[in-house]
Amino acid sequence: MTWRMPAETDPHERLWMAWPSGGYTLGDTDQEAHEARAAWAAVARAAVRYEPVTMVVRPEDRGIAAAYLDSRVGVVEAALDDAWMRDMGPSFVTDDGGRLGAVDWVFNGWGQQSWASWEHDSAIGRTVAEAAGAEVVASRLVNEGGGFQTDGLGTVLLTESVQLDPDRNPGLSKADVEAEFARTIGASHAVWLPRGLTRDSKEYGTRGHVDLVAAIPSPGTLLVHVQYNPEHPDYEVSGEYLELFHASRTADGKPWTIIEVPAPHTLHDGEDWVDWSYINHVALNGGLVACSFADPHDEKALRILADAYRGRHVSAVDARVLFSRGGGIHCVTQQQPLASGIHRITQQQPKARPIGA
């Protein structure tokens, strides 16, 4: 059996998210908790315009979630530590027979970070897979969905500081990692980046997720985050990325068409250099939900995205609250591709119901 992870732009069955439930994600005050809940709800509300959305919610949070979420959003109840579905959730795959699979990576809190907890989140991959009616594809690789990007045609973008992190996968080589991506998502060609954005590489980051750096809107095309201001340390980082991507090739040996997406004009948020990125968006059926930052560069960046995802309506959601907690719109979502066999497996819909039910 050969599994393949479709491109994010391929048709979806639905979008998965997780409800913020505690810790640093909710913050220390009632106001901070409200801001977090409102931000996650805003992403779900924007996404459900285009396709079904299912939210994993702790049973004890069902009532508070109902006060924020659009009534069209479905719910699966499960214990949670955090709310970054892209990273703790499964990566959905399909096979030539139309079956739906879900790669259940090992999740260990972004490399056993001292501030993270993952007792419950480490089980969410299997929980979501079973709720979706997918066959679980177990993996021993410590990995997160935000740590790679694929074009669905054999190419995968990876980061040495993530997949080769000694606190994630001690002793593994690039060849070991590539072999596992070939087995689980059908990737035949890897493009390796050395590191991630500056802030994302610090204590409270992921150590280098690629979904802040590059996205693949269509075969052979790369959207790349570029910092044009030399005052920001990502000025040099993004220069390295551009040089590397220009020298790299797709799985079929062709050069990329590279579209530069400017970083926000804002350089600092009062705590540190920002890692705000317009790259951290999610493509949906006929739509795109993208980050905005009340920033002078918003309009230009959203226009670039609209051109790259021609034919999809772009909805912008203010992502500053998400980024203040460690991620963006792509980080809080995970797409489930449309598989011809899914209805044979689940009969109708995943084990979800409207949150108001």
Rank of each mutant, 00 (worst) to 15 (best):
E236A: 15
L164W: 00
P194S: 11
G171Q: 03
A182F: 01
A215M: 14
A182V: 02
G208Y: 01
F181C: 07
Y204K: 13
V213D: 03
E178G: 09
V191P: 15
L222R: 10
L223W: 01
Y228L: 12
V224A: 12
R195D: 06
S188R: 13
G220F: 06
A214M: 13
D211E: 06
Y204T: 06
T221R: 15
D167Q: 08
Y228I: 04
H209I: 10
T221H: 11
P194A: 10
E180A: 10
W192G: 14
P230S: 12
S201M: 15
D165R: 01
R168D: 02
A179L: 05
R183K: 14
L197D: 08
A175V: 12
L212I: 06
L164A: 02
R207T: 10
A190V: 12
V224L: 15
W192N: 14
H209V: 09
D167E: 08
A215K: 13
V224K: 07
T184S: 14
A175M: 11
L197G: 11
P233T: 14
W192T: 14
L223D: 05
G186Q: 04
T206W: 02
H189T: 13
T206E: 06
K202M: 11
V177K: 02
G186F: 03
P230N: 10
P170I: 00
E180D: 13
A175S: 15
A175P: 11
H232I: 05
S201W: 02
P233Q: 14
L222P: 14
A187Y: 07
P166Y: 00
A214C: 15
E236K: 14
Q227W: 01
Q163N: 01
K174F: 07
P170W: 00
N229K: 08
A182K: 11
K202F: 01
D165T: 00
S188D: 03
R183P: 04
K174A: 14
P230G: 10
G196E: 06
G196Q: 10
E178F: 06
T206A: 06
P217T: 12
P230I: 08
Q227L: 03
P219T: 05
T184M: 05
A175K: 15
G205E: 02
V226Y: 00
H189V: 11
A182I: 01
D165K: 02
Q163H: 07
P166V: 00
Y228M: 06
G208K: 01
R183Y: 02
R195L: 07
P230C: 08
E236Y: 05
D167T: 06
Y228G: 13
L212G: 14
G205K: 06
G220H: 08
D200C: 13
H209A: 11
A179M: 03
G186R: 02
S188I: 02
H225S: 10
S173W: 09
R199C: 05
L164E: 00
S218W: 13
I216M: 15
S238E: 03
P194K: 12
G196C: 09
V213P: 03
T206G: 09
R168M: 01
D211G: 12
L172C: 11
L193V: 12
G205N: 08
A182W: 01
W192R: 15
A182C: 06
R207H: 14
P194R: 13
L172V: 12
A187F: 06
N169M: 02
